[in-house]
Design a protein around this nucleic acid. Sequence first.
DNA 1: CCCATTTGTTCTACGTTGTATAACCATGAA
DNA 2: TTCATGGTTATACAACGTAGAACAAATGGG
Lengths: 108, 108
Amino acid sequence: MNTPELGKLQLSVLMAVATLDDEAYGLGVRREVSEVRGREYSVGAIYTTLSRLEEKGLLESWETPPRPERGGRSRRQYELTAAGRTALREARRVAARLWDLEPGVGPA
Amino acid sequence: MNTPELGKLQLSVLMAVATLDDEAYGLGVRREVSEVRGREYSVGAIYTTLSRLEEKGLLESWETPPRPERGGRSRRQYELTAAGRTALREARRVAARLWDLEPGVGPA
DNA sequence: CCCATTTGTTCTACGTTGTATAACCATGAA
DNA sequence: TTCATGGTTATACAACGTAGAACAAATGGG
């Protein structure tokens, strides 16, 4: 199976997971994506995208134990699979050619 | 009305129109987009996208006179509107931040 | 002439993404 | 025991991506 093409939100979400490390869970991703894209995203937008990416095998997730703070329940934590990293590199390559930009460093 | 967000094909098509100048008609755009994205696009994909962009007011079009070559019939020629140029600049800005790349020159 | 061929556009249909809202769940504080 | 907080799931629909077939106009060769 060759690397799937990604929509723009999918891309942003994948990148967010790549950068966020232990903050890579639903609402954390939401904050990051909203910041990078310069507009607020609804929770639904983010969660649906996360699970679609997981279905495609670009992400994997697990439950964390509940957190000790006020209301801090358990989180669904995400992480890139090998396929996810490949897809990101690929997307970056395409973007660079598309925009005729220098590759730079970035999270991928 | 603030500048609309664009899908990835819409973006490629808009960019193609921006760069192609007098070759900015259906099949010309198709060639360009296919080359940049590294895969063949169907005619339907391109034409639908072109008209959606026109509906949004990012492109405008007109009929050219028939061309003198074999089978050369008239073309529907496209050109960016002011809103189209703005949308491209905007998209470029977002992409640069998203990928953390240097802005570069580009067609916009 | 007229028709096969070339260049080009429109129509139609459907799967995938984008996106919002509401509902639901768990936990600690009051 | 209820409420605010932090978190996730469910559901629904509009917009975008994409393909394929049908259609239209021009022209050169028999």
